[in-house]
């Protein structure tokens, strides 16, 4: 044990498989895509894929914090649909008084952010203060928001006023320097999220709570407040995602955001965050989101497999990505 007592200098080994796994999977997908279709690496396609990933991506960044802190949120998909519906209703209602212009867009955005924040706080309050299982609370709110949007839309589709939509459209399709807004916003959310997770007190506290709640409590971490904040932040990010989503098609219906929660959770786990909490990484989540979008994109761009099997291919890749990480863990 004498050798142990000397402080051996930090050895820089190769990054472990848990880091390499998702990155490798992504690279393999890109190579496959590029070899199958010449347009795959074109600017237009890359823009499409990134912009499309932005909704789930922004939500998944928030989900990373919730899961890292040992929680779960199943309600984000229907929450997004509800917020989108609410936003459209408010904007349509304000149209006669505000007219088409920047103020009404800002009003819509404020409504989305506020609604997201309130919805997130509500989930968080029920989970932390009342101490109800996150799974149950968010399963419940998932049903509630889904029904609310169906009700608001009267079973049909809520559509943004046509002129308003034309005015609002650039928020999804335009951007600066050829990079569209959803991609820019996604990038900002990711950078802030990564810093928050790996460099800030908040991320450290989330990991501590997910790792062992009692240790966190005994270490002067305000467990309930931190948890509540993760849900509030997720809600807010759902609001941000909705702001990007609404201008794309200008409508919301009962099928908006269907299964987004599962895609977001899958992306988080593929990225290497531990489902039972204690460890999370935002950049991994981004890779997870990109992997999921690329699978769809590649399957659409090629005629390799029957479209009936898209879901199966996704499933296999999700499981493979996670096995790659496990394998690494077992070897130490």
């Amino acid at each position: 044990m004498t050798s142990e007592t000397t402080n051996s200098p930090m050895r820089r080994a190769l990054p472990s498989m848990s880091v390499l796994g998702p990155v490798l999977a992504l690279i393999v997908l890109v190579v496959i895509g590029a070899s199958l279709n010449a347009n795959f690496l074109g600017t237009a396609n890359i823009t499409n894929v990134l912009a499309r990933s932005a909704f789930i991506g922004i939500i998944a960044v928030g989900m990373t914090f919730v899961i890292t802190a040992g929680g779960l949120d199943l309600s984000v998909g229907s929450m997004a649909a509800f917020i989108a519906g609410l936003m459209i209703l408010v904007m349509n209602a304000a149209l006669p008084s505000l007219g088409v212009g920047v103020p009404i867009i800002l009003l819509g955005m404020a409504v989305a952010l506020l609604a997201g924040l309130v919805a997130g706080l509500l989930n968080g309050f029920l989970i932390t203060t009342l101490g109800i299982e996150a799974f149950i609370v968010t399963l419940g709110s998932m049903g509630i928001y889904r029904s609310l949007v169906t009700w608001l839309a009267d079973g049909g589709t809520l559509s943004l006023d046509f002129e308003l939509r034309t005015f609002y459209r650039p928020v999804y399709f335009d951007g600066i320097l050829g990079i569209s807004w959803p991609i820019i916003v996604f990038a900002i959310v990711v950078i802030v999220g990564e810093l928050l997770m790996s460099r800030a007190k908040f991320g450290r506290h989330c990991a501590a709570i997910g790792s062992n709640e009692s240790v966190a409590h005994y270490s002067n971490v305000d467990v309930n407040r931190t948890r509540l904040l993760t849900y509030a932040m997720l809600g807010l990010l759902v609001g941000v995602a909705t702001i990007m989503y609404v201008p794309r098609l200008g409508s919301a219906s009962a099928s908006t955001g269907l299964l987004w929660e599962l895609e977001a959770i899958a992306a988080v786990i593929i990225g290497g965050t531990v489902l039972k909490g204690g460890f999370g990484r935002v950049w991994g989540t981004v890779i997870g989101v990109l992997i999921l979008s690329l699978i769809d994109n590649i399957l659409n761009l090629t005629d390799l497999v029957s479209p009936y099997l898209n879901g199966a291919i996704q499933g296999v890749i999700i499981i493979l990505a996670v096995i790659l990480q496990r394998e690494a863990k077992a070897k130490g």
Partner: peptide, 9 residues
């Protein structure tokens, strides 16, 4: 072990 330290950190 249960209240003092995060064993996997």
């Amino acid at each position: 072990k249960l209240r003092g330290l995060l064993l996997d950190k």
